[in-house]
Simulated scan of single mutants.
Amino acid sequence: MYTRRVVVVIALAVIGGLALIAAASLIGYEIGTSRASAPETPFAIPTTTPTAMATPSPTAQPTQAPAATPSPTAQPTQAPAVTPSPTAQPAATSTPSVPAPVVQINTPASGTRVFAGQPVTIQFTAMSSVGLNRVEVSVDGAIYATFPGLSPAPSTMNGSQIWSSTISGDHTLAVRAFDTLGQISTGTSIVVTVVSAPAPPVVWFTQPTSPTGRIVVQAGSQVQLEYWATSDASLSRLELWVDGQVYATDVGSDQSHSMHITRTWSSTAVGDHTLLLRAYDTLGQSTDSQQLIIGIASPNPPTLSILYPNNGELIPPNENVG
């Protein structure tokens, strides 16, 4: 009978222990659910030792799980300020460049040789698309002449300037143009060489000829004249003078070193007339020829009649004829 009681007590103890275990598991599950971050501590399974009194082992109390430390709340990271891109500015439209003026020296050609004192004509042409303000001519780096533009400013200017020098050697002649924008043409220059002046011209008559330098013709007769002039420099003109007045002038051509002239002359003025030649070169030197004297005789010469003795009359010896 005693043994049966013991078995019953043990069975009740086992059943009670299982019930406690189930309750503890349920309580642990609820705690784990509410505190997800806390580690789950398992309950110790109680061990029952059968005793004579069949006294159940004390039930293990669940250990209080430590309070879960809350994770720090993530702070939103401040996004860096976005620097606005600069607004694209429209590209500036470039103004087409205006070409500088252009100058051309037409004459003389570079390398020209002239005599000391010989005039040289500098001829030029200047052009500009916006108009010319002025043109300057310089000699050996110094301004020699200035040609101002007109109003409105012309696009083309043609000009000439006479220059001469008595200083032998090379001389630089330059021309430059200024437009209305202040632009200056590129340097345009030539070199002219000045040499020592030659001898003056030589001039003479070849017709009519006379050993004495004098001839006589009847009034109104045509006298054929022929004469020459030569010069190392160019001849500018040749003049025929009659009785102190210019009778005829002949102009030399460019680079003319000799001149040959023929012409006729006549006069009705009875008496002697003086003819003279005068030649000029381009240096301004002049030379006179020897004089030519032309006598003009009357067309009606006087007559002479012999009254006594008569033609064929006999006169006694020693008789005076009076």
Rank of each mutant, 00 (worst) to 15 (best):
I15E: 13
I105S: 05
R263N: 09
T83S: 12
S267T: 05
N106D: 15
A199I: 04
V139E: 02
W204A: 04
Y29D: 04
T63A: 02
L283T: 00
T93D: 09
P316G: 02
A23Y: 13
L304W: 07
T264C: 01
T49F: 08
S234F: 10
R5W: 14
A22W: 02
A81C: 07
I261V: 15
T83V: 10
Q104A: 13
V246R: 03
Q75P: 11
I215F: 00
L304G: 09
G131A: 11
A74N: 06
L277T: 04
R237D: 01
I293P: 06
Q64N: 11
M53H: 09
A92F: 13
T156F: 05
A44D: 07
G312W: 09
S110F: 05
T33C: 10
V135R: 08
D179G: 11
A88T: 11
A79V: 13
M127I: 15
I10W: 06
S94M: 06
N318S: 07
V14P: 06
W204M: 01
I294S: 03
S94E: 14
V202K: 04
F205G: 03
A233H: 05
L275E: 08
Q291A: 13
A38T: 12
S286Y: 01
P299I: 06
P90E: 13
T121P: 04
M1D: 15
D250H: 13
L173G: 07
G187A: 12
A279V: 02
M53V: 12
R134A: 11
L283R: 00
Q218F: 08
I294Y: 05
Y144E: 15
S160T: 10
T166Q: 01
H257K: 10
P86S: 08
G17V: 05
L276G: 07
E40F: 00
T121F: 03
I143G: 02
S110Q: 06
I190N: 00
T303P: 01
T303C: 06
L275S: 08
S289D: 07
D272L: 06
V120K: 01
R278A: 00
V6C: 10
Y247V: 06
V6D: 11
V192E: 13
P309R: 00
T107I: 12
P46V: 05
R278G: 00
T33N: 14
T95S: 13
W265N: 02
V194G: 00
V192S: 07
T93L: 08
G295K: 08
A36S: 12
R134D: 13
S57R: 08
T268G: 04
N133Y: 10
R35Q: 12
N300R: 08
T209Q: 11
V8Y: 12
L275R: 09
P84E: 08
G284K: 03
S231K: 05
